[in-house]
Amino acid sequence: MTATHIKRVYRHFLIYGLLIVLLALFLFPIYWIINVSLQPNNELFRFPPRWLPSHLFLGSYKAVLSSADFLIFYKNTFLVASGSTLLCVVVSILAGYGFSKFRFPAASLMLVLFLSTQMFPAVTLLIGLYSLYSSLHLLNTYTALILASTTTALPFCIMLMKTFFDHISKELGEASEIDGTSQLGTLIRIILPLSTPGITAVSIYTFLVAWDDFLFGLTLVSDLNKRTLSPGLSLQFLGEFSYNWSGAAAAAVIATLPLLVVFLFLQRFMVAGLSAGGVKE
């Protein structure tokens, strides 16, 4: 009894110790970004660097928050990222289910083909992409950015959803079909509730792919009113003559805060796993 007790304490010690070390490593740069954002640029060139701002400097935050451009970039990014997430999640659920449940002769080949669309360097595709979106009259539209981010994320979302659906027993679906539920009904009512962790992971992934997009936003959109965050920040803070580190950091902090709330909300859906669904293995 005591031996297992000691073992448990030891285990806890190990888990929390590792957690603290890893969190420290991952959060230190975040701390540094916040630290940089609270100092004027001229304070950054000193050694040893300041661990805390010598005085609270809010100039960068004021500048970012009072910049109409930043708010536009922010809104655009949010629209594009949300649109891409919805589109990608729905399309990848359908396709993932299709690939998982129904065996076609060329299914494997098709999945590999889907996958290989991601394997060409974006830099060499730029001119082709630009011409394509130009001929579809989609330049300077949210649609262009949503399509571009969705297609970037889609192949993996499909594969991931397929993997998750593979886990869910086929018998479950078949049983429900015998009950007289339609195939689409089975997917929506029986299968999807069991796949929430997968769907959440795929949503977060797609959202952040669109969120971090630089190249498409830069190339397919040139209108300042449609600019997204990354190209916008680059335009405002990473100029010809100098970098505005403090400003860029402040913008990153402001941009990231609302996401944290979204994550806090979304991670709840990660908890419901197969264990809750009463699936027989």
């Binding site: 540094w32 970004i33 952040l208 971090d212 965050l229 920040l233 990153a252 941009a255 944290l260």
Partner: peptide
């Protein structure tokens, strides 16, 4: 919070 690094735009992360 472990997700935060992924939400920092790469372009900003690189200058920091």
């Amino acid at each position: 919070i472990i997700l935060i690094p992924w939400a920092i735009p790469t372009i900003v992360a690189s200058v920091i």
